[in-house]
Amino acid sequence: MTEQNFIIESKDVHLYYGKKEALKGVSLDFMPKEITALIGPSGCGKSTYLRTLNRMNDLIPDVTVTGTIKLNGKDIYSPKMDTVALRKEVGMVFQQPNPFPFSIYDNVAYGLNISGMKDKQKMDEIVEKSLRRAAVWDDVKDKLNKSALSLSGGQQQRVCIARVLAVEPEVILLDEPTSALDPISSAKIESMLVELKERYTIVIVTHNMQQASRISDKTAFFLQGDLIEMGQTRKIFTNPKEQATEDYISGRFG
């Protein structure tokens, strides 16, 4: 094994909701500037694992996390870790498009606004750049001051992605970002993600195996809180090591 520069390294991550063990010792590393897909049946812990990466599980009462997760070598669960700073590095896009009930501009500028940016011109630039990267600029450039809730679901989701891009995170976590969208919107988001890979590390949870095989470099298969197998997407989909992976991928369950 050669020394590799993982951006995120997680070792033996256990997560408990109260007494119930939802993650049973997951060890998973991520390479920078790659798309990693997390797949598995409902309730297998893939979304839960994703949310440990920017400590969103902290918001749920009675959650305990053990094990270590390192971002660029720094333990994000150490008491000294500033979750606010962490979440600026590790952005998140949710399953349901969740723009704020503000204008499109204010939505994308929100992250800049909270970090205290005052320079209006620079803000305009970043907002435009982020919306372009999220492939939604042409749809919204004439109505930046309209409420983001007036957009279609697919446009809303891309605005939400632009909102994350504006903060310039290193890692973007996506929790089934297209499961609530129509196929055309999903396709737009997929091709956009492939372009974003040049700049960002992307971890995506998806129920859609075709989606995982289309866009991801690596795929990790979860089952009942365990990581079953992780490897090159092509290998996982054509020649998996584990029987469970093959059964799931060939549609025998899940």
Binding site: R87, K88, I114, S115
Partner: peptide, 9 residues
């Protein structure tokens, strides 16, 4: 959640 995930306090 969206706000906190963007690094808001």
């Amino acid at each position: 959640e969206a706000s906190l995930a963007l690094g808001a306090t």
